[in-house]
Design a protein around this nucleic acid. Structure first.
Length: 477
RNA sequence: CGGGAUGUAGCGCAGUUUGGCAGCGCGCCACGUUCGGGACGUGGAGGUCCGGGGUUCAAAUCCCCGCAUCCCGACCA
């Protein structure tokens, strides 16, 4: 390296150590995991994102789990237009006011200026509300349960890969009901079943579930429920929201039905969404110094079978097949022309929960070496019993990751009596009566927000006016 | 929009102060040796130095204008 500066000479060494997380530069660590796990890269336009195969496979797994749960609650999938006439947004006053600053508008198309600008959808309440007004006539048309998987655009000022991109992919559910009670029940069912199960049971992330304050409520909603996860650096992240929209959109779009008494009534609607942000949450909640750690339920590959030497690839292929027949998402790595260390590191960075390493020495002993990604430990298991052991261990790893998430959330939650005592990372529990909207504004000046309100039993409140509410306060992404 | 930086090979960067052959690491290609935890050697390919204008014998480098990106803040329904 003639003429090379000292810094240049140790660049390869430094490159191996960039994953070390430090509180003050956690986002940097996060970006390194995204890059080294080969999940995604920044897109050509500001704040956009190109998802790479491993990142997409992970998102696809999350989608599959969420979609199955949505279908189980009786919803049908639909597809609505990407472009929405600007006038649609203006039909609900709070909605347009809330979204205006971050809208992407198409003003020119087909070689001429458009008579009316088109909004690239930031969410689809308006265009779906327009359809609902035609699709719903009588009470026999209710409830109407729709879900859409789509990309939406919100021109946020500070994009961050996966966590807040200008364009993101999500699932948005939209429903219409005959009564307020039914709409509220739907909102809570989605929140407690579809979303909580997806986040807690599939992604192994423990959350605080509650009601948003007025300040944080979705533009156009009466009530917004949220799941707030706590990331490794003590900052909270909103992982999914469900909205009871009351009759706000029903009145704006004239969505009415004739009830059993031949009276025309406005419907009650809900909407709810969960996005690619959850991939970011997964990284931030479970990642460690060696990269991503994936919970087995959402891992695109749960096990990778590594052939250490060429002569064992056949037996490794058999093992891979055996695992797949046993219902395990297994992958054979027979790239023996690439060094073992490089391959092992690649699967670690990508977060595959279990690696099975099989070489001639193992084969001679009738065993296989099993490496756990979450703990970094290795064990030797007999070749005959490996499938059973793998299945048990996948469950154990899943449980262990959730337990770690729960433990972190509990350890990082502090009870305080005054707003002034809130300082540092983690959640702070404080009676909502002692905060109020004034206290909320004061907290905002110091970078804190009320993430959500819960009842004294940690349950979901039915209204923001209950007396016993506890506020969860934290810094947030 | 306010404050601060940056723009040079696919990626990460040096070179700009003091104008003088376009460089380094990683990655990529070929061959060989390796390869039970991020291998090494030799050779090679790869460039609109963000764009436009100016100064000069000569500009990545100096001057002017523009554009883009990143960081801090505001904003994040």
């Amino acid at each position: 390296a003639a003429g090379g500066s000292p810094r240049r000479l140790w660049a390869p060494m430094a490159a191996k150590n960039v994953l070390t997380p430090q509180a003050e530069d956690f986002p940097r660590w996060y970006q390194d995991v995204v890059a080294k796990a080969d999940l995604a890269e920044n897109g050509p336009a500001r704040g956009t994102m190109t998802m790479k195969p491993w990142g997409y496979a992970l998102w696809e797994r999350i989608q599959a789990e969420v979609d199955a749960r949505i279908k189980a609650t009786g919803h049908d999938n639909v597809m609505f237009p990407l472009f929405i006439p600007y006038s649609f947004l203006q039909k609900e006053a709070e909605h347009v006011e809330g979204f205006s600053p971050e809208l992407a508008l198409v003003t020119h198309a087909g070689g001429e200026d458009l008579a009316e600008p088109l909004v690239v959808r930031p969410t689809s309440e308006t265009v779906i509300g327009d359809a609902m007004s035609r699709w719903i006539q009588g009470h026999r048309d209710l409830p109407l349960l729709l879900n859409q998987w789509s990309n939406v655009v919100r021109w946020e000022l500070r994009p961050r890969i996966f966590l807040r991109t200008s364009e993101f992919w999500w699932q948005e559910g939209h429903t219409a009901h005959a009564t307020r009670e039914e709409a509220q029940e739907e909102t809570l069912t989605i929140h407690d079943r579809v979303y909580l199960e997806s986040i807690r049971d599939c992604m192994a992330i423990d959350v605080v579930s509650g009601l948003k304050t007025k300040r944080e409520t979705f533009a156009g909603a009466d009530l917004t429920y949220t799941h707030e996860g706590l990331m490794r650096d003590g900052k909270a992240l909103q992982m999914a929201t469900s909205h009871n929209l009351g009759q706000n959109f029903a009145k704006g779009f004239d969505i009415t039905y004739t009830d059993a008494n031949n009276t025309v009534q406005h419907v009650w609607t809900t909407s709810w969404g969960m996005s690619t942000r959850t991939v970011g949450a997964l990284i931030m909640a479970h990642g460690d110094d060696r990269g991503l750690r994936l919970p087995p339920v959402v891992a695109p590959r749960q096990v990778v079978v590594m052939a250490v030497k060429d002569e064992v690839t056949d037996i490794c292929a058999d093992l891979d097949q055996r695992l797949m027949r046993a219902g395990v998402r297994s992958k054979l790595d027979d790239r023996t022309e690439t060094s073992f260390g490089r391959r092992a590191v690649e699967w670690e960075l990508k977060g595959v929960p279990i690696r099975l390493e099989l070489g001639p020495r193992d084969l001679a002993d009738g065993v296989v070496t099993l490496a756990r990604r979450d703990t970094g430990t290795k064990e030797t298991v007999s070749l005959d019993g490996v499938a059973d052991r793998v299945i048990d261990l996948l469950v154990e790893v899943q449980d262990s990751l959730l337990a770690q998430s729960t433990q972190r959330r509990q350890a990082d939650t502090t009870d305080v009596a005054e707003v002034d005592k809130i300082e540092g990372p983690g959640f702070f529990r404080i009676p909502w009566n002692d905060v109020g909207e004034t206290g909320e504004d004061q907290l905002a000046e110091r970078g804190y927000t009320v993430r959500c309100l819960v009842t004294s039993e940690e349950g979901l409140p039915e209204s923001r006016d209950q007396d016993d509410l506890i506020a969860y306060v934290a810094r947030a992404y």
